[in-house]
Computed example of a mutant assay.
Amino acid sequence: MYEEILDTAEELFMKQGYNDTSTRQIANILNITQPNIYYHFKNKEEIYYQVMQRLAKEVGENLNQIAADETRDFDEKLLQMAFYLQKRHPFSLFMMMHDLQHTLQPEIANKLFGLWENSYKQPFLGLFTQEQRIRATVEPDFAVRQLFILISANLDLPEAIKVASLKKTMELFFYGILEK
């Protein structure tokens, strides 16, 4: 039941965010009682932390695998990493950061921010620090933050145009940072 709770909670957190997801919703979807949830988890915050920890591990492994692919160049790797996030993490990164900063206990928020830094940001940052074509005036950390903003802006689009829009966004991003 532990994994089923996490699976259901992840789906709800990804669609609705932390604030708009309740343990009652999770219990109703699973046809269990809330006390059954609390048998496995202390509170909703712990569920969120476990969901995000599990997701961050998976995302980090996949992003690092794409980044390490020596058959792709920088542009292709970034595009594939962005597509992966769009598909696997359809949760607004803005909403996630808002949850971290404003709704969770500082101790949990700090742990989750550390997970995000290591699993989401670091694979991108590694690529940016290795790429020779990036203009000297572009700081890798700043470029990664801007890239996440652009990826997030494409998450709420209808499925039919989501991929094409992200591809256009990435092309715009590349031509804005790569030297000619």
Rank of each mutant, 00 (worst) to 15 (best):
M1G: 09
Y2Q: 10
E3L: 14
E4N: 15
E4A: 14
L6S: 06
L6R: 09
D7W: 10
T8P: 04
E10M: 07
L12K: 07
L12N: 04
M14W: 12
M14K: 12
Y18K: 03
N19Q: 11
N19F: 08
D20V: 06
D20R: 14
S22Y: 07
S22M: 11
T23C: 08
N31V: 08
N31H: 14
I32R: 06
N36S: 15
N36R: 08
Y38K: 08
Y38A: 08
F41H: 05
K42G: 05
K44C: 08
E45A: 12
E45I: 06
Y48E: 07
Q50E: 13
V51F: 05
M52V: 10
M52R: 13
M52P: 04
Q53V: 05
Q53A: 08
R54V: 07
R54Q: 07
L55K: 13
A56M: 08
N62W: 05
N62L: 06
L63H: 01
N64R: 13
Q65H: 07
Q65D: 12
I66C: 00
A67Q: 01
T71M: 02
R72E: 08
D73T: 14
K77W: 00
L78T: 02
L79Y: 01
L79C: 03
L79T: 05
L79G: 02
M81I: 01
A82P: 02
Y84E: 00
Y84T: 02
Q86S: 11
Q86P: 03
Q86N: 12
H89P: 05
P90E: 07
L93C: 11
F94P: 09
F94Y: 08
F94Q: 13
M95K: 15
D99Y: 12
L100C: 06
H102V: 12
L104S: 11
P106W: 01
P106I: 00
E107R: 12
A109M: 06
A109Y: 11
L112F: 09
F113H: 11
L115W: 04
E117P: 03
N118M: 10
S119M: 07
Y120V: 03
K121P: 01
Q122P: 00
L125W: 04
G126D: 01
L127A: 02
F128N: 01
T129H: 10
Q130K: 13
Q132P: 09
I134P: 14
R135A: 10
T137K: 10
T137N: 10
T137C: 03
T137E: 13
T137Q: 09
V138W: 05
V138P: 03
E139N: 15
E139V: 11
P140D: 03
P140M: 05
D141T: 07
A143G: 05
A143D: 14
A143H: 13
V144Y: 02
V144A: 09
L147Y: 01
L147R: 06
I149Y: 06
D156P: 12
P158M: 06
E159R: 14
A160G: 10
A160Y: 12
A160K: 14
K162D: 03
K167Q: 15
K168Q: 03
T169H: 03
T169C: 11
M170P: 01
M170W: 00
E171P: 00
L172A: 04
F174M: 13
F174D: 11
Y175W: 15
Y175L: 15
L178R: 13
E179P: 08
K180S: 13
K180E: 15
